[in-house]
Design a binder for these strands. Sequence first.
RNA 1: GGCGGCGUAGCCAAGAGGCUAAGGCAGAGGUCUGCAAAACCUUUAUUCAGCGGUUCGAAUCCGCUCGCCGCCUCCA
Length: 482
Amino acid sequence: MLKIYNTLTRKKEKFVPLHPPFVGMYVCGPTVYDDPHLGHAKTYISFDVIVRFLRESGYHVRYIQNITDVGHLLGDEQEGEDRILKRAKIEKLEPAEIAYKYEVAYFRDMDLLNCLRPDISCRATGHVPEMIELVEKLIKKGYGYEVGGNVYFDVSRFKGYGKLSGRRVEELVKGSRVKVAEDKRHPADFALWKKADPQHLMQWPSPWGRGFPGWHLECSVMGMKYLGDSIDIHGGGLDNQFPHHECEIAQSEAATGKPFVKYWLHNNMLTIDGQKMSKSLGNHVTLAELFQKYDPMIVRFFVLQGHYRSPQDFSDKALDAARSGFERLKNTVLGLRRLLIDEIEMPKQMKEEKWNQHQKKFYHFMNDDFNTSGAISVLFDIVKDITSTDGSGFVVWGPNPKEELNQANALFKHLGEDILGLKFEEEANQELEDDLIQLLIQQRERFRKQKEWEKADEIRDSLEKIGIILEDGKEGTKYIKK
RNA sequence: GGCGGCGUAGCCAAGAGGCUAAGGCAGAGGUCUGCAAAACCUUUAUUCAGCGGUUCGAAUCCGCUCGCCGCCUCCA
């Protein structure tokens, strides 16, 4: 039985979808105005594993992610500037070019991290008519009011405002550090529609004149359009809990009178030296940068070693540790697969109770609010089972070693690859490369037999320089790729 | 100022009332080896920031103290 921590109730709850076996899941996507960074990796890897696990558990998941290509302001809301517009000016491109450029970069990096594409990736600019409809509906119902081309949501009319983030409207006002737009009725009211200056690069006609949609509108509109008025799961970064998600709830529930989201999931932030990574602090690491040094699977493994609701601290040391750990895991799986000629097939029934236990334990961890850290420990339990020796260098097997290897392989495939989304594959062109390396190994073997160590070592050192590490063992020489 | 969270070995990180406090990395010793690397074996927290309290029993619940962080402005 799957349990999920729901931010709305601050409790772990049994997961019961609105319309089983279907699950609607909406995750706040990126604002596409800059290169994707490590923080994106943590968030979208976490939700990717959640989607994968729900699917492996038998649910039919529709996974929606938005692309924010308009509407988020920078700084003070009156003089503030849209981030995409700002970037467009810097790069001297159309806003749409900026958005598309960074959307491409986003999916490029997410693909490398082996995050499944959402079933629908929807752009805010493609849903402006629906947003206007929602604003009109809110005005009609008395939740929205127009002042000179701006439309605001009247927070005082919606009594549930603050239920997600635990805030109260009175306190919001007191603690506010931001200058408040003067035309609002209440300082906590938020914009549904903003009037645009004539020279504003992104604007649309509306019943209130030319303008652009408010910050939070897109997620309400697209979530409800593709998943219905009530959504099973809505996820996003913790930094979106307030005000973004709070406002989404207010808008949506005011409009429909129905609960907007059943389970709110928030993943915690990635920190660098204990501080949140953010562009304004200048400590952000882009994924493209990081991938030069670390394979994307190492980054994925690193993220999965933590829990999605815990903050995770990044450092080279931590990533190096993740690399060593992941490589041991990967090399074990690859070594195992070299031994097996058979196609990987999930055995219908686990013959050995031992292998069955691993799977149970893995599911137990994952069912407990997606404890990927625990789940990974099970992968290492399996590694131990197939590599442990009795002390004299021999692996301890049951009566049918081949069957056991098959079982282990099936588990690595199902648990490691299908659910956690780790890839243990070697790159293409493997065969030719393998043949060539084998040739060199044979060559070196001859030198070794003749005890011409210098020549033998020369081959080994040269190979090491191009990332091929040789290891001499009882059954001949093996190699691994760094 | 308001709201929320965190503090577990050298590092990363699970665990949320009761079997010996997961797992990874690093370290130490050993096996193997021409040397090396890898792999394997053994080992590494009488204790969970500190102090009190509740309880038969607390990393886990409550209170206080200290330290750190997030949100309250766009952010994953």
